[in-house]
Design a protein around this nucleic acid. Structure first.
Lengths: 144, 144
DNA sequence: TTATTTTAATTGATATATCAACTATATTTA
DNA sequence: TAAATATAGTTGATATATCAATTAAAATAA
């Protein structure tokens, strides 16, 4: 019966790092846009960069399942960040389009998100970031 | 408008690593104990190691808030892993006690959890794990 | 000792996570 | 082409996350 306490393993540090970052990011986002979550902001960025993404593709990228994405997008449509229409080519798909409000929000959020990322990585060299990335990718691979 | 896509930053890799690990761990846990989550298993381990933990302390360790812990523990009491009594010394506190079923479950889970952790870190040297931990702690500190 | 403030936990409301079942359309196969 | 299968998304049920408000007890201050 000598299993390490959860807090003693590096996996715990991984979890703590991402939760700390998300709290920090959410706090800063709230200062400029009261009612949007980190994931909703990420979704806006994704759509800006790749307007043709399907809900399923978004789900994979954000590590969520279809059901969560459906409801998240419903809310974002209700909050006027997006519109959702049937796709012409494939009527199973929905086309998501950033509204003007969505674009405006994104403009406000850009500097915040950039600053969040920079602050989170403050003091880490390019090499260290690359090492971190490589180690994490090993873990990701091990968990397949 | 040159914000990096969410997938291009190391923070994304952190998130992916922990989510991958959790899915992997959950899948393996389900093989021996159908109806328990990773967090519930962590809570059993915590209580085994430190029987006097309060709900608030557990919440901090597991990165959850009081409300989540209250409901999580309610469920675990209902599922007979735990009992919950008023504490004698401080009647605001609840004393959580592992039931026999909780202990048995823990015994079944020990080897799985250990193997999950080992597999996740397979191929990483002790030094690399220490480096990973140090880098993550920097990020955690930056996000305060 | 009474009043004030803290602390521990619960409850309510709303959003998200997860799993299963389901609908509608598209694609593949026989 | 008809039938079978796969894909995209929705819905329902239940658990968890988050925030705010609340209760009860304990600790502190007046």
């Amino acid at each position: 019966m000598n299993l390490k306490a959860p807090t003693d393993i590096v996996i715990y540090a991984i979890e703590k790092a991402i939760k700390s970052y998300r709290k920090f990011a959410q706090k800063n986002i709230r200062k400029v846009e009261g009612n949007i979550t980190v994931d909703q902001a990420l979704l806006l960025i994704l759509l800006k960069n790749s307007p043709e993404l399907s809900q399923g593709e978004i789900a994979k990228i954000l590590f969520k399942d279809y059901a969560s994405i459906t409801r998240m997008i419903e809310l974002m449509v209700k909050k006027k960040y997006l519109t959702r229409n049937e796709s012409q080519e494939d009527r199973r798909r929905k086309q998501l389009i950033l509204s003007n409000a969505g674009e405006e929000t994104l403009k406000k959020l850009f500097p915040i998100i950039e600053s969040n990322r920079n602050q989170a990585l403050r003091g880490l060299s390019t090499l260290e970031i690359a090492q971190l990335d490589a180690l994490l990718k090993k873990i990701i691979n091990n968990c397949k």
